[in-house]
Design a protein around this nucleic acid. Structure first.
Length: 224
DNA sequence: GCGACAG
DNA sequence: ATCTTGTCGC
């Protein structure tokens, strides 16, 4: 039996890349009033294929504007802290398809963390820095950081700084963190502005997750 | 060495 | 993430 190339992933090199990318992450306020199009990014799997879905959601119209799906054989194992090297490549494929069909994108929401990460470079920050657009990380579980009560809110603190907030939904916490070109407060405002009270996740991510699972068999078989 | 560990 | 029926609880 031949050794799978999945074993040749260079962990130390990946961590060095994250340290480099994290230094390029920018924390800055957004003009909330002009924000409209939020893109949600998520990935599902079918056998050895990753299926990424990019959903463009309009805050003003409270509706989906466009959807694009992309697939790619998975070549990197899942290692906590290094998720971006497994999922970002296929997310970029779906994102590029979507960008060619839209006038503009205001913010991108990624399923995963941003600065709430051991090297301050979760997948949301990784993607944001690479394409230089505002990004927000949305995760169902905490990976890194401390939860601290600040002004009656649950703040995610890393190295003494608030990098995001935990939002209680359906009795469990959902973690919203800074990805790139945004502040923790603005990330929270935008997440709440797109959050359907009946759903566990903000709508762009909720929809990307559902659509990705809905089409993975069709897309994956179409990929053979 | 031990435990934790996004999707 | 994914493999999966019934089942406990609001």
């Amino acid at each position: 039996m031949r050794i799978s190339h999945i074993m040749f992933f260079d962990v130390e090199r990946a961590k060095r890349a994250q340290n480099t990318l994290s230094r390029l992450a920018i924390i800055t306020p957004l003009d909330i009033s002009s924000i409209d199009i939020i893109v949600g990014l998520d990935v599902s799997y079918h056998s050895s294929n990753a299926v990424a879905t990019a959903v463009a959601y309009s805050i003003n119209r409270k509706n989906v504007i466009a959807v694009e799906v992309a697939t790619k054989p998975v070549k990197v194992p899942y290692i906590p802290g290094l998720l971006a090297f497994r999922e970002a490549p296929v997310m970029f494929l779906a994102l590029k398809k979507l960008i060619t069909k839209l006038k503009k994108i205001d913010v991108i929401m990624v399923n995963g963390h941003g600065l709430a990460h051991p090297r301050k470079c979760g997948i949301a920050t990784h993607i944001g820095v690479v394409i230089d657009l505002p990004t927000i990380g949305i995760a169902k579980k905490l990976l890194y950081g401390e939860i601290v009560f600040v002004d009656s809110r649950l703040a995610i603190v890393v190295d003494g700084n608030i990098v995001g907030y935990a939002v209680n939904r359906r009795g469990r916490n959902i973690y919203v963190s800074i990805g790139h070109r945004i502040t923790a407060d603005d990330a929270l405002r935008i997440a709440l502005a797109t959050w359907d009270v009946n759903h566990l996740l903000p709508e762009p991510i909720e929809l990307a997750d559902k659509i990705s699972k809905e089409y993975k068999y069709i897309i994956a078989s179409n990929n053979k």
